[in-house]
Amino acid sequence: PEDPYCPYPTSLLHIEELCDSIVRSHRDTSQFRLEELQALRWKLFSREELHAYQSKSVDEMWQHCAVRLTEAVQYVVEFAKRIPGFRGLGQNDQITLLKTGSMEVVLVRMSRCFNTENSTVFFDGKFGSTELFKSLGCGDLMVAVFDFAHSVCALRLTEQQMALFSSLVLINPDRPCLEDRGRVHRMRRDLEVCLSHMLRRDNQESLQHKLYQKVSVLQSLCSLHVEKLHWFSQRYPLIVHSVFPPLYKELFT
């Protein structure tokens, strides 16, 4: 039935068009193509290359990772802009949704770059284990991030399912300080209808509950990241201020 308050009808045709549009947006804003990642999955860092990373100072490695993370976030910003209805939101609400949602989507997308057979992630052009990030001094965070990637990979999401899940992670009406919560909620409801429609089509309705369970893990990973950043910026305030990417500082400090 037509919902008078919903900016657009929730007919099946509309839902399928919305699904296709989100899948296209995901594909068009993916930092790495799946085929590329598959082809490179056995390209591991050599012992010497690993040693080079582990010999970096903590501030060098933090800066390096902040740059890489910021690159990934920018792809997520482009993804958000292409989600139907997102640009119709107020500018403050667009910022609010991305302020926390961008890192969460980066973490979801990271599972595409993860090889569960040897627990390695694609970074700087090759695959490396948590050992690669030793000099960050954030062992617990990296283990938690790798564990999360494992758990998402275990769901064996298709690219289409990942696209929908990413949009749901981003369009979160529970974020604090939203000015038009109702509008975000309506957008979210259509995305939920899209996801259940897609999972029903794929005969994988049990996935919906498992996906929603991931959201709380995502939030704890993001808080742990901010906690680590706080720890680091107390030790190296000048580094964060002077050489960290400005977008990273805007989002996370």
């Binding site: 920018q74 910003v77 910022i95 989002l251």
Partner: peptide
């Protein structure tokens, strides 16, 4: 909020072409 997130705001303003 826009004041504190100038870069993000600018990225959001850029066209999606």
């Amino acid at each position: 909020l826009k004041e504190k997130h100038k870069i993000l705001h600018r990225l959001l303003q850029n066209s999606t072409s």
